[in-house]
């Protein structure tokens, strides 16, 4: 597989120009050479035959395109994902940081929908000592919840902070592009519910797929291109201030996603302030 053009790392402008050429070219090359597959994982799953859940949909390369011009920060995706996938409190497979940028009166809001990038070169797969995580033929990076020991290596290895430990299964967990849905020809829950139409889902290998066409013909960006992971979640309108280290003042939840929600003991981490006075002052 072709390694990413390192010259794109130092310069965002170069990256933007180069993304269409170098980045996407790598997909095609990767396809031709077969997937990055963890041998142990593959062995553990041979008994399942050609079950799509394990092997994915041959010939396809699922990607997501997020048009930030259309994101309104409504968090419908965040919620739909939690309900569809039964994600425990305080954990998120997808989340949307909501920040304020600029200074008064020229301030504006910016949103950055986040999820697993289903990278072409996922750094989480190779570190798994149990062979519990692998990439399907269609690019979806999966976890075998029966095999995962819950060691957390992959959580640390992901440069995008996309993985977390699920306190219910005590395994690693992350976005799967809703593989249970896409394997039935449906859309991921977050895409279905996106009110602004910012999230789009498609097959990069299909030249007629509108998402693939947009990715090939429009300037698109990825998060932290310097990781070399070649993310397959693309953005339109990803500015420099959002691309590498999210800058700006958080206006919704705190920086720490898990600070919201409940702890493992089921109690809320935020304690109410109950003091109030009604008397005239």
């Amino acid at each position: 597989m072709k390694s990413p053009d390192k010259s794109t790392i130092s310069s965002r402008r170069k990256f933007l120009m180069g993304a269409g050429a170098a980045g996407i070219g790598a997909v095609a090359a990767g396809k031709a050479q077969g997937k990055t597959t963890n041998d142990a994982a593959a062995k553990g799953r041979t008994a399942e035959g050609r079950d799509t859940a394990y092997h994915g949909q041959a010939g396809k390369r699922w990607v997501m395109l997020i048009d930030l011009r259309k994101c309104v920060g409504c968090q419908a995706c965040t919620v739909a994902c939690k309900i569809e996938n039964n994600i425990p409190d305080g954990r998120f497979r997808t989340w949307v940081p909501d920040v304020e940028i600029g200074t008064f009166p020229n301030a504006r809001r910016a949103f950055l929908p986040r999820l697993c990038n289903h990278c072409e070169r996922p750094s989480c797969v190779e570190v798994c000592p149990a062979g519990a995580t692998w990439q399907r033929a269609d690019g979806v990076v999966e976890i075998d919840y029966d095999t995962c020991w819950g060691c957390g290596s992959c959580v640390d290895a992901c440069p995008y902070d996309a993985r977390f430990m699920n306190p219910v299964t005590q395994t690693a967990d992350k976005c799967t592009f809703c593989s249970q849905r896409i394997d039935q020809g449906l859309l991921p829950a977050c895409v279905e519910t996106c009110i602004g139409g910012a999230r789009q889902f498609g097959d990069l290998n299909d030249p007629n797929d509108p998402v693939a066409r947009t990715i090939r013909t429009h300037p698109v960006q990825v998060l932290k291109p310097e990781t070399g992971n070649e993310p397959r979640v693309f953005y339109i309108g990803l500015t420099h201030e959002l691309q590498n280290n999210l800058q700006g003042k958080p206006t919704l939840w705190s920086e720490d996603r898990e600070a919201a929600g409940k702890g493992d003991d089921g109690t809320w981490k935020i304690e109410p302030l109950v003091e109030m006075e009604g008397a005239d002052v």
């Binding site: 859940a53 699920n166 395994t171």
Partner: peptide, 12 residues
């Protein structure tokens, strides 16, 4: 931890 209903689709 709790066994997920499906080894790949997990608790979805």
């Amino acid at each position: 931890g709790e066994k997920a209903p499906h080894p790949v689709y997990g608790r979805s």
